[in-house]
């Protein structure tokens, strides 16, 4: 009766969220007096799973599962959950995990709670805290089914080391045509850019930048920091930046370690979507901009002067700390 985690990988290597869900699952397993098993697809080695408390990795190598497919992945994870008799299954909040989570929940008759931010406050009744109303509140939610599915919020729990020997075993789920009802035809993905979902740092800019021609300095700042770029909703609505960069309540959520907002006023819908970022820096020439109330650090000044100066300071800092 293990706790099962779905550990996501890309090109064979585990993503940071994999270690996060493993750390969290280890916390639950300790409370329940059991161990943690993982399922992964085409992982090339067990990576650091053992460091974060996983005792056994079930690695799926089926050629048909090389690329993400929500239906087939959900079916495979359900079979692994049954094989290890998992009562608790933990997945991340990535777009792919959310996609397969609802399918997995139905396959397993497992009550599903997404956006969970803490270890369960009690395992009987099983009660977890999740964020609701786009981070404006939390709900303590009980799960009444025998099996439970937890979707862990990004960056909420962090990484906790708990060195364990991790055994690796091939796992061959039995799949059927129904698992492949949705067929991927083409993928269009910038491979050289950090994504908002994975980024530790996000540099975001708004209407204060005046026009798309001024984004060079935003990209340069992101570059220096190894950050992803994002924007406010009107900026994407006006076509200054692609829709995929729109963050906030109706765009992508941001839960990075550092969020830098430049020329963004801090409307409630924007703040809702970025507030689970750990540290927020605001650069705005209006000292009354509402974003300052939600920020940790602020600079009142003209972005066109502050951003280039900050880039120079950061370059110097990096050179000194290299």
């Amino acid at each position: 009766m293990s706790v099962l985690v779905y550990t996501e990988s890309e090109d064979g290597a585990f993503k940071k969220t994999a270690y996060e869900v493993a750390s969290y699952a280890k916390g639950i397993a300790d409370k329940m007096g059991t161990d943690v098993a993982a399922i992964a697809f085409h992982a090339t080695d067990a990576g650091e799973l053992g460091t974060y408390g996983v005792s056994k990795l079930h690695n799926v190598k089926d050629a048909k599962l090389e690329k993400f497919n929500a239906g087939a992945y959900a079916d495979s994870i359900a079979q692994a959950a049954k094989a290890v008799d998992a009562k608790v299954i933990v997945i991340s909040s990535s777009a792919n995990a959310k996609y397969l989570g609802s399918l997995l929940s139905v396959h397993l008759d497992a009550g599903y709670v997404s956006n969970v931010v803490e270890l369960p406050s009690s395992t009987d009744p099983f009660t977890v805290k999740r964020s609701v109303f786009t981070n404006k509140a939390f709900s303590n939610t009980q799960i009444s089914t025998d099996r439970k599915l937890i979707g862990l919020s990004k960056n909420a729990f962090g990484l906790k080391e708990s060195a364990t020997d991790c055994a690796v075993e091939d796992f061959a789920p039995s799949l059927n045509d129904d698992d492949f009802k949705v067929e991927v035809q083409s993928v269009d993905k910038a491979t050289d850019k950090v994504t908002i979902a994975d980024a530790e740092i996000v540099v975001s800019a708004g209407r204060g930048m005046k026009g798309p021609e001024n984004w060079g300095m935003i990209e340069e700042l992101a570059d220096v920091l190894g950050a992803a770029t994002a924007c406010s909703k009107p900026v994407s609505d006006m076509g200054w930046r692609p829709h995929g960069e729109h963050v906030g309540q109706t765009g992508k959520p941001v839960a990075s370690n550092l969020y830098i907002a430049i020329g963004i006023s801090g409307a409630i819908q924007h703040l809702a979507g970025v507030s689970s970022s750990k540290v927020k820096v605001v650069i705005n020439n209006d000292a009354e901009a509402p974003f300052f109330k939600a920020a940790d650090y602020g600079v009142v000044g003209d972005a066109f002067e502050v951003v280039p100066a900050l880039i120079e300071k950061l370059k110097a800092f990096k050179a000194a700390n290299a």
Binding site: A95, Q185, V187, D188, K189, T195, A197, D198
Partner: peptide, 8 residues
């Protein structure tokens, strides 16, 4: 999808 889009 994270970092792009996909046609299915």
């Amino acid at each position: 999808i994270d970092g792009g889009k996909e046609t299915v």
